[in-house]
């Protein structure tokens, strides 16, 4: 058997590995993506959180898109601080719920990309749970390559599309 690549994907799946791979330092992940059906601001009356922290551009909580490297589902080092902030937020706001959307770029087959998107969403979930967030606060969904954020057929678009999106509910 010519097993060309090592089982790094399996390793990534088995545990969330914090690879200190620097490289792709350019992260423009500070934008909030307003998606239809994604309720990112709606704080229900009487809930413990107001939503303001999540909307503060100076807060790490403002970042709600977590980018991934090609064919990878490991959390990049440049997103660890952001995810720790989200974990702390969820722990101190037990009525807040988080939907994690997993996405993939358009290359390769669609259903396999659904699997990749789920692996990315689960990597974020595992990170948050390891930080102490109860699993009951988190749900995940994979859109694979079906909901691209950028529509080009090249690496700049692909790198924007390999992402997890954090969508808060109240």
């Amino acid at each position: 058997m010519k097993l060309k690549s090592a089982g790094w994907l399996l390793i990534a799946l088995a545990s969330v590995v914090f690879v200190g791979c620097a490289s792709t330092g350019d992260d423009s992940g500070a934008a909030i993506e307003d998606r239809s059906g994604a309720d990112t601001t709606g704080a229900s009356a009487g809930s413990a959180w107001s939503g303001s922290e999540l909307e503060d551009p100076n807060s790490p909580l403002y970042t709600k898109i977590i980018y991934f490297d090609f064919d990878q589902s490991t959390i990049r080092s440049d997103f660890i601080e952001v995810l720790r902030a989200h974990a702390a937020y969820l722990i101190s706001n037990r009525s807040a719920t988080l939907m994690i959307e997993g996405h993939a770029d358009e290359r390769g087959s669609r259903e396999y990309n659904i699997g990749l998107g789920e692996r990315r969403a689960n990597a974020i979930r595992s990170f948050l749970e390891a930080e102490g967030v109860p699993g009951t606060q988190i749900t995940t969904i994979s859109y694979g390559e079906e909901r691209p954020a950028a529509f080009g057929n090249d690496e700049p678009s692909w790198s924007e599309n390999r992402r997890g999106v954090l969508v808060y509910g109240g």
Binding site: K4, S5, G7, L9, L10, L13, D71, S109, E111
Partner: peptide, 24 residues
């Protein structure tokens, strides 16, 4: 691993599928 994209053999005795259990 990700196991997905099943397809039946025409005789219905087996299926093929995509898996990255070996890496890619």
């Amino acid at each position: 691993a990700i196991d997905t994209e099943p397809a039946w053999s025409p005789d219905g005795r087996s299926l093929v599928f995509t898996s990255d259990r070996g890496g890619g």
